[in-house]
Amino acid sequence: MKVLVAVKRVIDYNVKVRVKPDNSDVDLTNVKMAMNPFCEIAVEEAVQLKERGIASEVVAVTVGPKAAQEQLRTALALGADRAIHLETDEVVESLGVAKLLKKVVEDEQPNLVLMGKQSIDTDNNQTGQMLSALMGWAQATFASKVAIEGDTATVEREIDGGLQTLSLNLPAVITTDLRLNEPRYAKLPDIMKAKKKPVDTRAVADLGVDIAPRVELVRVELPTERQEGVRVGSVDELVDKLKNEAKVI
Protein backbone atom coordinates (compact mmCIF):
# COMPACT_ATOMS: atom_id res chain seq x y z
CA MET A 1 0.00 0.00 0.00
CA LYS A 2 0.98 3.58 -0.53
CA VAL A 3 1.42 6.01 2.35
CA LEU A 4 1.33 9.77 1.91
CA VAL A 5 2.96 11.72 4.72
CA ALA A 6 2.53 15.47 4.98
CA VAL A 7 5.31 17.56 6.53
CA LYS A 8 5.63 21.23 7.43
CA ARG A 9 8.56 23.61 7.71
CA VAL A 10 8.37 25.45 11.02
CA ILE A 11 10.60 27.33 13.44
CA ASP A 12 13.05 24.98 15.19
CA TYR A 13 11.53 23.88 18.51
CA ASN A 14 14.50 25.24 20.42
CA VAL A 15 14.40 28.79 19.07
CA LYS A 16 12.94 31.59 21.15
CA VAL A 17 10.09 33.23 19.29
CA ARG A 18 10.46 36.97 18.64
CA VAL A 19 7.63 39.29 17.75
CA LYS A 20 8.11 42.01 15.13
CA PRO A 21 8.36 45.51 16.62
CA ASP A 22 5.16 46.55 14.82
CA ASN A 23 3.31 43.52 16.28
CA SER A 24 2.25 42.41 12.80
CA ASP A 25 3.53 38.85 13.23
CA VAL A 26 6.33 36.80 14.73
CA ASP A 27 9.74 37.55 13.26
CA LEU A 28 11.19 34.60 11.39
CA THR A 29 14.08 36.48 9.79
CA ASN A 30 17.30 34.46 10.06
CA VAL A 31 15.64 31.98 12.39
CA LYS A 32 16.60 28.31 12.30
CA MET A 33 13.83 26.28 10.68
CA ALA A 34 13.17 22.54 10.86
CA MET A 35 10.59 19.87 10.23
CA ASN A 36 7.64 20.13 12.62
CA PRO A 37 8.31 17.54 15.39
CA PHE A 38 4.89 15.89 15.03
CA CYS A 39 5.55 15.53 11.29
CA GLU A 40 8.82 13.74 12.16
CA ILE A 41 6.74 11.22 14.10
CA ALA A 42 4.46 10.82 11.06
CA VAL A 43 7.45 10.22 8.76
CA GLU A 44 8.92 7.72 11.23
CA GLU A 45 5.64 5.80 11.35
CA ALA A 46 5.40 5.72 7.56
CA VAL A 47 8.99 4.49 7.26
CA GLN A 48 8.40 1.82 9.89
CA LEU A 49 5.34 0.64 7.95
CA LYS A 50 7.59 0.26 4.94
CA GLU A 51 10.26 -1.55 6.93
CA ARG A 52 7.64 -3.98 8.21
CA GLY A 53 6.59 -4.70 4.63
CA ILE A 54 3.16 -3.12 5.06
CA ALA A 55 3.78 0.00 2.99
CA SER A 56 5.26 -0.38 -0.47
CA GLU A 57 5.87 3.32 -1.07
CA VAL A 58 6.16 6.38 1.15
CA VAL A 59 5.51 9.74 -0.50
CA ALA A 60 6.27 12.93 1.42
CA VAL A 61 4.39 16.12 0.59
CA THR A 62 4.68 19.70 1.77
CA VAL A 63 3.05 23.04 1.06
CA GLY A 64 5.46 25.91 1.44
CA PRO A 65 8.15 28.18 0.05
CA LYS A 66 11.15 27.05 -1.95
CA ALA A 67 13.12 26.52 1.25
CA ALA A 68 10.60 23.92 2.43
CA GLN A 69 12.40 21.54 0.08
CA GLU A 70 14.90 21.12 2.95
CA GLN A 71 12.19 19.43 5.01
CA LEU A 72 11.26 17.18 2.09
CA ARG A 73 14.96 16.22 1.82
CA THR A 74 14.88 15.42 5.53
CA ALA A 75 11.84 13.18 4.97
CA LEU A 76 13.67 11.49 2.08
CA ALA A 77 16.76 11.00 4.24
CA LEU A 78 14.58 9.41 6.91
CA GLY A 79 13.27 6.91 4.37
CA ALA A 80 10.54 8.41 2.18
CA ASP A 81 10.84 7.25 -1.45
CA ARG A 82 9.91 10.45 -3.24
CA ALA A 83 8.45 13.85 -2.51
CA ILE A 84 5.95 16.38 -3.80
CA HIS A 85 6.48 20.06 -3.18
CA LEU A 86 3.49 22.36 -3.60
CA GLU A 87 5.40 25.59 -3.77
CA THR A 88 4.04 28.96 -2.66
CA ASP A 89 5.30 32.01 -0.81
CA GLU A 90 1.78 32.74 0.46
CA VAL A 91 0.76 31.88 3.99
CA VAL A 92 -1.73 29.07 3.49
CA GLU A 93 -4.28 28.34 6.24
CA SER A 94 -5.15 24.80 7.30
CA LEU A 95 -8.26 24.82 5.13
CA GLY A 96 -6.21 25.76 2.06
CA VAL A 97 -3.59 23.13 2.90
CA ALA A 98 -6.32 20.52 3.30
CA LYS A 99 -7.71 21.44 -0.11
CA LEU A 100 -4.26 21.25 -1.68
CA LEU A 101 -3.57 17.90 -0.03
CA LYS A 102 -6.93 16.65 -1.31
CA LYS A 103 -5.65 17.39 -4.81
CA VAL A 104 -2.51 15.35 -4.15
CA VAL A 105 -4.53 12.52 -2.59
CA GLU A 106 -6.76 12.38 -5.66
CA ASP A 107 -3.68 12.14 -7.89
CA GLU A 108 -1.70 9.72 -5.77
CA GLN A 109 -4.52 7.53 -4.39
CA PRO A 110 -2.71 6.60 -1.16
CA ASN A 111 -4.25 4.04 1.19
CA LEU A 112 -3.20 6.03 4.21
CA VAL A 113 -2.31 9.65 4.96
CA LEU A 114 -0.14 10.28 8.02
CA MET A 115 0.25 13.76 9.44
CA GLY A 116 1.33 15.44 12.67
CA LYS A 117 -1.53 16.30 15.02
CA GLN A 118 -0.49 19.94 14.88
CA SER A 119 2.38 22.18 13.92
CA ILE A 120 4.29 23.96 16.65
CA ASP A 121 3.94 27.38 15.01
CA THR A 122 0.22 28.01 14.61
CA ASP A 123 -0.83 25.17 16.96
CA ASN A 124 -4.08 24.68 15.07
CA ASN A 125 -4.57 20.92 15.14
CA GLN A 126 -6.90 20.98 12.12
CA THR A 127 -5.42 19.97 8.80
CA GLY A 128 -5.69 16.19 9.14
CA GLN A 129 -9.32 16.33 10.26
CA MET A 130 -10.12 18.73 7.42
CA LEU A 131 -8.46 16.59 4.76
CA SER A 132 -10.29 13.54 6.08
CA ALA A 133 -13.64 15.40 5.93
CA LEU A 134 -13.00 16.69 2.40
CA MET A 135 -12.21 13.15 1.28
CA GLY A 136 -15.18 11.66 3.18
CA TRP A 137 -12.71 9.30 4.88
CA ALA A 138 -12.36 8.02 8.41
CA GLN A 139 -9.98 9.78 10.77
CA ALA A 140 -8.00 9.00 13.88
CA THR A 141 -6.35 11.96 15.59
CA PHE A 142 -3.79 11.86 18.44
CA ALA A 143 -2.61 8.39 17.44
CA SER A 144 -0.38 6.57 19.92
CA LYS A 145 -0.47 3.14 18.25
CA VAL A 146 -1.27 2.12 14.68
CA ALA A 147 -1.79 -1.44 13.44
CA ILE A 148 -2.63 -2.08 9.79
CA GLU A 149 -4.25 -5.30 8.68
CA GLY A 150 -5.63 -5.57 5.18
CA ASP A 151 -8.00 -2.67 4.58
CA THR A 152 -8.33 -1.81 8.25
CA ALA A 153 -6.30 0.35 10.59
CA THR A 154 -6.69 -0.15 14.31
CA VAL A 155 -5.61 3.02 16.04
CA GLU A 156 -5.14 3.74 19.70
CA ARG A 157 -5.58 7.45 20.33
CA GLU A 158 -4.84 9.71 23.26
CA ILE A 159 -8.01 11.33 24.51
CA ASP A 160 -8.44 13.49 27.61
CA GLY A 161 -7.96 11.21 30.58
CA GLY A 162 -7.35 7.98 28.72
CA LEU A 163 -6.97 6.03 25.52
CA GLN A 164 -9.53 5.18 22.87
CA THR A 165 -9.17 2.52 20.20
CA LEU A 166 -10.88 2.89 16.84
CA SER A 167 -11.02 0.69 13.81
CA LEU A 168 -10.90 2.60 10.52
CA ASN A 169 -11.63 1.52 6.99
CA LEU A 170 -8.75 2.47 4.71
CA PRO A 171 -8.11 4.83 3.12
CA ALA A 172 -8.02 7.07 6.16
CA VAL A 173 -6.17 9.98 7.74
CA ILE A 174 -4.21 9.41 10.94
CA THR A 175 -2.58 12.23 12.91
CA THR A 176 0.28 11.49 15.24
CA ASP A 177 0.78 12.16 18.93
CA LEU A 178 3.99 11.96 20.93
CA ARG A 179 3.72 8.40 22.15
CA LEU A 180 3.44 6.85 18.68
CA ASN A 181 7.18 6.38 18.16
CA GLU A 182 10.63 7.87 18.67
CA PRO A 183 11.79 9.40 15.38
CA ARG A 184 15.23 8.35 14.21
CA TYR A 185 17.98 10.71 13.20
CA ALA A 186 19.01 10.77 9.56
CA LYS A 187 22.43 9.21 8.97
CA LEU A 188 24.94 10.95 6.73
CA PRO A 189 24.86 8.32 3.92
CA ASP A 190 21.06 8.57 3.92
CA ILE A 191 21.25 12.35 3.72
CA MET A 192 23.56 11.98 0.68
CA LYS A 193 21.23 9.42 -0.90
CA ALA A 194 18.21 11.67 -0.29
CA LYS A 195 19.72 14.30 -2.57
CA LYS A 196 19.21 11.95 -5.50
CA LYS A 197 15.61 10.99 -4.70
CA PRO A 198 12.95 12.66 -6.88
CA VAL A 199 11.11 15.79 -5.74
CA ASP A 200 8.19 16.82 -7.91
CA THR A 201 7.67 20.57 -7.57
CA ARG A 202 4.35 22.13 -8.56
CA ALA A 203 3.35 25.78 -8.22
CA VAL A 204 0.33 26.17 -5.96
CA ALA A 205 -0.89 28.99 -8.19
CA ASP A 206 -1.28 26.48 -11.07
CA LEU A 207 -3.44 24.05 -9.12
CA GLY A 208 -6.69 26.02 -9.22
CA VAL A 209 -7.31 25.65 -5.50
CA ASP A 210 -8.88 28.47 -3.48
CA ILE A 211 -6.36 29.31 -0.78
CA ALA A 212 -7.57 32.85 -0.10
CA PRO A 213 -7.17 33.63 3.62
CA ARG A 214 -10.29 33.47 5.77
CA VAL A 215 -8.61 34.65 8.92
CA GLU A 216 -6.93 38.02 9.24
CA LEU A 217 -3.98 38.26 11.58
CA VAL A 218 -4.72 41.48 13.44
CA ARG A 219 -1.91 41.57 15.96
CA VAL A 220 0.74 39.37 17.55
CA GLU A 221 2.17 40.17 20.96
CA LEU A 222 4.22 38.53 23.65
CA PRO A 223 2.27 37.16 26.59
CA THR A 224 2.62 38.96 29.90
CA GLU A 225 5.97 37.95 31.31
CA ARG A 226 6.14 36.06 34.56
CA GLN A 227 7.91 37.92 37.33
CA GLU A 228 10.78 36.14 38.99
CA GLY A 229 9.68 35.16 42.48
CA VAL A 230 11.74 34.60 45.60
CA ARG A 231 14.47 32.19 46.60
CA VAL A 232 13.83 30.00 49.57
CA GLY A 233 16.67 28.78 51.78
CA SER A 234 15.35 25.39 52.82
CA VAL A 235 12.78 22.69 52.21
CA ASP A 236 10.97 23.81 55.37
CA GLU A 237 10.66 27.33 54.03
CA LEU A 238 9.43 26.02 50.66
CA VAL A 239 6.74 23.86 52.23
CA ASP A 240 5.67 26.76 54.45
CA LYS A 241 5.40 29.16 51.48
CA LEU A 242 3.42 26.64 49.41
CA LYS A 243 1.03 26.04 52.30
CA ASN A 244 0.58 29.50 53.74
CA GLU A 245 1.49 31.98 51.03
CA ALA A 246 0.62 30.35 47.68
CA LYS A 247 -1.97 28.06 49.34
CA VAL A 248 -1.51 25.38 46.69
CA ILE A 249 -0.93 22.40 48.99
Binding site: I11, V26, T122, V215, E216, R219, E221, L222, P223
Partner: peptide
Protein backbone atom coordinates in the same frame (compact mmCIF):
# COMPACT_ATOMS: atom_id res chain seq x y z
CA UNK B 1 -5.34 32.63 20.81
CA UNK B 2 -1.88 31.43 21.80
CA UNK B 3 0.53 30.47 19.04
CA UNK B 4 4.00 28.94 19.25
CA UNK B 5 2.93 27.01 22.37
CA UNK B 6 1.94 30.24 24.08
CA UNK B 7 5.18 32.07 23.31
CA UNK B 8 3.05 34.65 21.50
CA UNK B 9 -0.60 35.63 21.53
CA UNK B 10 -2.32 36.27 18.20
CA UNK B 11 -5.42 38.40 17.75
CA UNK B 12 -7.27 37.05 14.73
CA UNK B 13 -10.36 38.12 12.84
CA UNK B 14 -12.48 35.50 11.13
CA UNK B 15 -13.83 36.49 7.73
CA UNK B 16 -16.15 33.49 7.43
Amino acid sequence: RPIYAGSAIATVKSLD
